[in-house]
Amino acid sequence: MDVKQLKEDVIAYAHTIGIDSIGFTTADPFDELKQKLVDYHAKGYASGFEEDDIQLRTEPKLSLPTARSIIAIAVGYPNKLKGAPRSKRGERRGMFARASWGQDYHTIMRKRLDKLAEYIESRVPDVEMKSMVDTGVLSDRAVAERAGLGYTGRNGFVINPDLGTWTYLGEMLVSIPFPPDDPLIDSCGDCTMCVDRCPTGALVGNGQLNAQKCISFLTQTKGYLQDEYRYKIGNRLYGCDTCQQVCPRNRGINTEHDDIVLEPEILKPRLVPLLQMSNREFKETYGHLAGAWRGKKPIQRNAIIALAHFKETSAIPELEEVAVNDPRPMIRATAYWAIGQIQGDEARPFIEAHYDEELEEVQEEMIKGLEMGRT
């Protein structure tokens, strides 16, 4: 088998199925990443969404013992929303991060990887393969970097020369010894725009992220949002794009694909209708987005906080309805907090009227709503 020719054929085929960038590396352990992950966990930076087993994350052959190579792929996604509705008083809107625009990227990437696998199998019938996208055990970014798709910027994203950071990443372990590509030698230089502009100071340098402070992570948590971050998330319902938006390497880049269909009214939805949306309505409207993976509870909490951010007085009747009748204590509590933040002392009679009938955790938010100031 001429693996060099096969590699060229695989690259050519990949570009016909919507893969924008493809690279090859060995299935050797990621030894440098191993120590970084040990330090990362020791500092308490992990989000908890990642694979905990550092051995699995850094040793590809634990996932596929016959692996000889890893094929890394990148698919660019759009970052411009044409026809985006305006958020205005009386009709405030939230925002889903760009990685969640269109169909869930896990589905998009799996389809491409499945097609690529079928092609390789047609050429090498006895090949063994295993594909991963985001939820796999390997670090997508470490694989992409070693395969030459880009270099890791200070914002922690892989910066591709043609796609910037606006990319979905995936990889495929294969039993074929493809010639590896060289890593891309580049850097951010002295640019620190992403670090300087991060709303919570989550970027701690050298591409490292404290996920516990990252707005993208915080919007996906299901419990109470810490006080210090409530006004930091603004109107973000899921994710955060600030460190990508300010990156100079992203200027002028906007990649589009036919299967990434943008729906402005869904990606920048009105906040008030979200407050009492049923599970069925949520799944029917937002279920196809990657941003729906944690369910409606975090989205509704974030929508309530966004209304407080906007001081949206027209939403008070709906917030009062949620505060009194929602069966979930955290959602009721956040609604009471938002009412206090929007109305100030005017909210005191309403909050005091319901104080004694509430749980202690809700009462704490009621008091906080009347006392907490914007930070």
Rank of each mutant, 00 (worst) to 15 (best):
G102Q: 08
R123P: 00
A144G: 07
R98M: 14
S139C: 11
Y151I: 07
L163F: 09
L149F: 10
W101L: 01
H106R: 09
A117L: 03
Y151D: 05
S131I: 09
T135P: 10
S100Y: 13
E145F: 01
R112T: 00
D104W: 12
A99I: 13
G148Q: 03
T135W: 06
A99L: 11
T135Y: 04
K111T: 06
D134F: 02
G153T: 00
F157M: 13
L138Y: 03
P125C: 10
A117E: 10
V143Q: 12
S131V: 09
R146L: 09
R110D: 14
I159M: 10
G136Y: 07
M129N: 02
F157R: 12
Y105T: 07
I159E: 09
S131N: 10
S139A: 15
G102N: 02
L163H: 13
N160S: 13
R146G: 03
A97N: 09
D114R: 14
T152W: 00
E128T: 10
A142M: 13
R112N: 04
L138I: 06
I120T: 00
L113Y: 00
S131C: 09
F157S: 04
H106A: 05
A99K: 10
S139V: 12
A117K: 15
A147T: 07
A99Y: 15
K130Y: 13
S100D: 03
S122N: 13
P125H: 05
R146K: 15
D162Y: 09
Y105G: 00
R154E: 15
S122M: 03
S139T: 15
G102T: 07
T135N: 06
S131L: 13
N160A: 12
T152S: 13
Y119R: 01
L113H: 01
Q103F: 04
V143S: 12
G136S: 15
V124M: 14
M109V: 04
P161D: 12
L163S: 05
A142R: 09
P125R: 09
Y105S: 01
E145N: 06
K115D: 05
K130N: 14
G153Y: 07
W101D: 06
K115S: 14
R98D: 14
A117I: 06
T135E: 08
S100I: 02
E121N: 09
R123W: 08
V124A: 10
V133L: 05
K130R: 14
I159T: 11
G150E: 05
D104Y: 10
P161R: 15
K111W: 08
L149I: 14
T107V: 15
M109C: 02
E118I: 00
M129D: 02
E128L: 13
G153F: 04
Y151F: 15
F157I: 00
R110Q: 11
A144Y: 00
Q103L: 10
S100T: 10
P125W: 02
P125T: 04
R154Y: 07
I120D: 00
I108K: 02
V143R: 11
G102M: 07
A97T: 11
R110T: 04
A97C: 14
S100Q: 02
N160Y: 10
E145T: 14
R154T: 05
Y151A: 09
A99G: 02
A142F: 05
R123A: 08
V133K: 02
V143H: 11
Y151N: 05
Y151G: 07
T135I: 12
T152Q: 11
